[in-house]
Simulated assay, not measured.
Amino acid sequence: MGSVALPIRSRLARSFFLVSLIAVVIQFCWLFATTDMIAVRGFAVAAGFPIFILAVAVFQVWLAGLAIRRGWIS
């Protein structure tokens, strides 16, 4: 929803991206807490892609905040 709200210049984009970031953190924390994936595959293999997804989510929140501060979205 944040990806739709950003191009239509809605301030809700940041809120949607923030909710998405929280959901990503909960999802991967749950995954790593309930499985032994890191022990079986190793940290670099098991956490590589989740770290990338987390970085993209953080970037989206930052970009929406920057857009609000610069007045690109109202």
Results as ranks from 00 to 15, higher is better:
5 A>W: 01
47 A>Y: 14
45 V>H: 14
41 R>W: 15
60 Q>Y: 05
68 I>C: 01
49 F>C: 07
59 F>G: 09
37 M>V: 12
3 S>W: 04
72 W>D: 01
33 A>K: 07
5 A>K: 08
20 S>P: 05
62 W>C: 06
4 V>C: 05
73 I>A: 04
13 A>W: 00
33 A>V: 02
68 I>W: 03
51 I>R: 12
30 W>E: 06
31 L>P: 00
10 S>V: 06
3 S>T: 03
47 A>Q: 15
39 A>V: 11
22 I>Q: 06
21 L>M: 07
69 R>Y: 01
36 D>W: 09
54 L>F: 12
25 V>N: 04
51 I>N: 11
55 A>D: 12
5 A>T: 01
58 V>Q: 04
27 Q>L: 15
8 I>F: 07
66 L>P: 00
3 S>N: 05
65 G>E: 02
41 R>C: 12
43 F>M: 15
27 Q>K: 10
68 I>F: 01
70 R>V: 02
20 S>C: 09
1 M>D: 09
20 S>K: 10
45 V>D: 15
64 A>P: 00
50 P>V: 12
51 I>E: 06
7 P>E: 02
62 W>A: 10
56 V>L: 15
52 F>L: 14
4 V>S: 01
67 A>Y: 00
15 S>A: 07
63 L>V: 04
13 A>F: 00
53 I>E: 13
7 P>W: 01
58 V>T: 09
25 V>I: 15
67 A>D: 05
70 R>N: 05
8 I>C: 01
71 G>F: 05
47 A>S: 14
50 P>M: 10
18 L>E: 08
65 G>W: 00
3 S>P: 01
19 V>Q: 07
66 L>N: 10
57 A>D: 08
56 V>A: 11
5 A>V: 00
65 G>K: 01
20 S>G: 15
69 R>H: 08
59 F>S: 09
70 R>T: 06
34 T>M: 07
36 D>S: 09
13 A>C: 03
34 T>C: 03
32 F>R: 03
38 I>L: 13
51 I>A: 14
17 F>N: 02
5 A>D: 03
50 P>A: 10
3 S>H: 08
18 L>W: 07
16 F>V: 02
35 T>Y: 04
60 Q>W: 04
54 L>A: 09
54 L>P: 08
36 D>Q: 11
72 W>F: 08
58 V>A: 09
27 Q>D: 13
43 F>I: 08
42 G>K: 10
9 R>D: 11
49 F>M: 12
53 I>Y: 08
49 F>D: 08
37 M>F: 08
46 A>N: 13
60 Q>R: 07
29 C>G: 13
40 V>I: 11
27 Q>N: 11
41 R>P: 04
69 R>S: 05
36 D>L: 10
50 P>Y: 10
